[in-house]
Amino acid sequence: MANNGSIKQFIVSKVNYDKKKILDYLQNGKKEAICPKPTYDIISGKMISTSFTVLTDGEYIWKNDLPYYVDKYNIKLPQSFIEKVIG
Rank of each mutant, 00 (worst) to 15 (best):
S80Y: 14
I75E: 08
L23K: 12
Y25V: 08
Y60M: 08
I48Q: 01
E32Y: 01
F10P: 05
L23R: 11
Y60L: 00
A33G: 01
I48W: 05
N4T: 14
S44K: 06
F52R: 00
L66R: 03
E83H: 12
N16M: 04
F81H: 07
Y73W: 04
K84Q: 11
K31L: 15
L66N: 08
N64Q: 09
K14Y: 03
I42W: 10
N4K: 12
Y40W: 12
G5I: 11
A2H: 04
N16Q: 11
D18W: 09
L66M: 03
K8I: 14
N74Y: 02
F10H: 12
V12L: 05
V12M: 02
K8M: 11
K31F: 11
E32A: 09
Y68N: 03
V70E: 04
I86Q: 15
T56D: 08
I11N: 01
Y69A: 02
F52I: 06
I86W: 03
I86P: 00
Y73H: 09
L55M: 14
K8L: 14
I7V: 14
P38K: 01
L66T: 00
V12A: 08
D24Y: 12
E32R: 04
I61A: 06
N64D: 11
D18F: 07
I22F: 03
K14P: 08
Q9G: 05
F10A: 03
I48C: 02
N28I: 08
I34F: 10
K63N: 13
K20G: 07
E59G: 01
V15L: 07
L26I: 11
N64A: 03
I34W: 10
I22R: 03
Q9V: 03
D24R: 10
Q79I: 14
G29R: 11
L77G: 06
K31I: 15
Y40T: 00
K20P: 03
D65P: 07
I43M: 09
K63Y: 12
L23Y: 07
I11E: 09
F81S: 00
D24N: 15
Y17G: 01
K76E: 15
L23M: 10
Y69K: 05
P78T: 13
I22T: 04
I75H: 06
I43G: 04
K21M: 11
I11C: 07
F52C: 12
T56Y: 02
I43W: 02
T39Q: 13
K20T: 00
S80F: 12
Y40A: 01
E83P: 07
T56R: 04
I11Q: 01
V85H: 02
